[in-house]
């Protein structure tokens, strides 16, 4: 290989630029590696297994939303983990147990840097409290 010294130097510089956002964030003040602490919901259990819900709740919500709107009988969802338990396909149902959006949804979403657009239209406990005083 010709000019080995320069090639290796350039590779290192290239990798440095690629990983600069990570390095910047890790070295930023207030950086913690711990997972965010979620608000403990009321009630016995979630509509499906909680460990399954954690990575898959968005897929379930998408599925439920399509069924609720498009299918005349699709508003009611029967739990697969807890057979016989029927839930209605509304976000209102979620907030009966998860009583706060800021302490539950937002904590994780902010940590992961996602901003779902559900709350432009669907009512959160915070908005309800503000308007239905």
């Amino acid at each position: 290989m010709y000019s080995t010294k320069w090639v290796i130097l350039l590779i290192i510089a290239f990798l440095g630029i690629c990983f600069s956002p990570l390095i910047y964030n890790v070295s930023a003040p207030g950086f913690e590696l711990e997972m965010p602490e979620l608000d403990e919901p009321e009630g016995d259990h979630c509509i499906e297994d909680a460990d399954w819900m954690e990575p898959n709740h968005m897929d379930l919500l998408l599925e439920m939303r399509t069924q609720t709107i498009r299918d005349p009988g699709g508003r009611f969802y029967e739990s697969k983990t807890y057979p016989g338990e029927v839930y209605e396909g509304t976000t209102y149902q979620c907030f009966e147990c998860h009583t706060s959006k800021t302490d539950f949804c937002d904590t994780c979403h902010e940590y992961n840097g996602v901003s779902p657009y559900c709350w432009h239209c669907h009512n959160t406990p915070e908005v309800l409290e503000e308007y239905n005083r």
């Binding site: 509304t90 907030f95 239209c121 669907h122 908005v127 309800l128 308007y131 239905n132």
Partner: peptide, 16 residues
């Protein structure tokens, strides 16, 4: 939201 004074929690609003 600007035109609402009370919200029915069981139904959604619409977006702008």
């Amino acid at each position: 939201l600007d035109g609402l004074t009370e919200i029915n929690p069981e139904t959604d609003r619409r977006g702008h």
